[in-house]
Design a protein around this nucleic acid. Structure first.
Length: 275
DNA sequence: CCCGGAACCTGAAGGC
DNA sequence: TGCCTTCAGGTTCCGG
């Protein structure tokens, strides 16, 4: 499932294939994935635009286009973006194809593949209409332990739920939240506002560590995640609790437990992460 | 404000 | 070529 490290990996690997190229045509095979404007208008307005930049905000990819508009893509759980030669066949899970041209290289195509059809695309003048409610990015230096303390202060909800709430912190999802809580030795159900300053410092450090390591390892290929060339990442190989229910805790050997929180599986070590 | 649950979807996995 | 149920989860929306 693409979370911040996966989306950042895709951004880095996609940028050389997109930036400077012109969108010659767009084919939308599942119109409901186009959130704004209508699918017809989306296709019409994208044609002829040059991609000028590719950035990331939380789990959103943001392509800056000539003419001042932005194409935003969200992969949700099973989306992937694949660079293919022009004319390559779209498989049955391909929901959108962007045909790309420039003066210097062979025509290519960006395939937005998503078996579950949860992914989304927007074409907007102002990115804040889509990403405006996101909380801070956790990797820049301005995200300090004090900033995290302010976010947690007074909140009674379970720390795991807060970490996954994009309006509080942008980019963490189920897997990396579990990994960060394990690294910080915090139970997922701890009420967020009850963390001590020392626990907040541990959590702050853990969040940044698991995300940086995820990026370094090119993302976690659980579910359908793959990179734009179709290859997997290997961040999941060093996961210590995420999706590892029943296996021994790497720190103490106790079996990793699973609990359901907001309908999501949460994995943790009951001995290393006491409530 | 806060929380829980449904909806959006399909493929995989498990029970029988 | 087995059928049916359950599960997986990011985000949005809706109800209490």
């Amino acid at each position: 499932m693409p979370e911040l490290p996966e989306v950042e990996t895709i951004r880095r690997e996609l940028a050389p294939h997109l930036v400077g190229r012109r969108i010659a045509a767009v084919s939308v095979k599942w119109p409901r994935m186009v959130r704004r404007p209508s699918a017809d208008e989306f296709v019409r307005r994208l044609r002829g635009r040059t991609v000028e930049s590719l950035s990331r905000r939380g789990k959103y990819l943001v392509a800056g286009l000539s003419g001042g508009e932005f194409l935003l893509l969200h992969l949700k759980m099973t989306g992937s973006l694949l660079v293919k030669p022009s004319g390559a066949a779209a498989d049955k899970h391909t929901r959108m194809v962007f045909s790309l041209i420039d003066d210097r290289s062979e025509p290519s195509a960006l395939h937005f593949r998503d078996p579950r059809k949860f992914g989304s695309a927007w074409l907007v003048e102002d990115t804040s209409t889509v990403t405006g409610k996101l909380g801070p990015e956790p990797l820049p230096a301005r995200f300090t332990a004090e900033a995290l303390a302010d976010i947690l202060k007074g909140r009674r909800q379970p720390i795991k739920a807060l970490l996954c709430d994009q309006s509080r912190i942008a980019g963490l999802g189920n897997m990396y939240a579990d990994e960060a809580l394990f690294a910080a030795r915090l139970h997922p159900l701890r009420p967020a506002g009850t963390l001590s300053p020392e626990e907040i410092r541990r959590l702050h450090r853990a969040i940044r560590q698991v995300l940086r390591r995820g990026i370094r390892d090119c993302g976690a290929s659980v579910s359908n995640y793959c990179r734009p060339d179709g290859s997997p990442g290997w961040a999941h190989e060093s996961f210590r609790v995420a999706h590892r229910g029943g296996r021994p805790c790497p720190r103490c050997g106790a079996p990793i437990q699973r609990l359901s929180l907001r309908g999501r599986g949460s994995y943790f070590c009951p001995r290393c992460q006491p409530l």
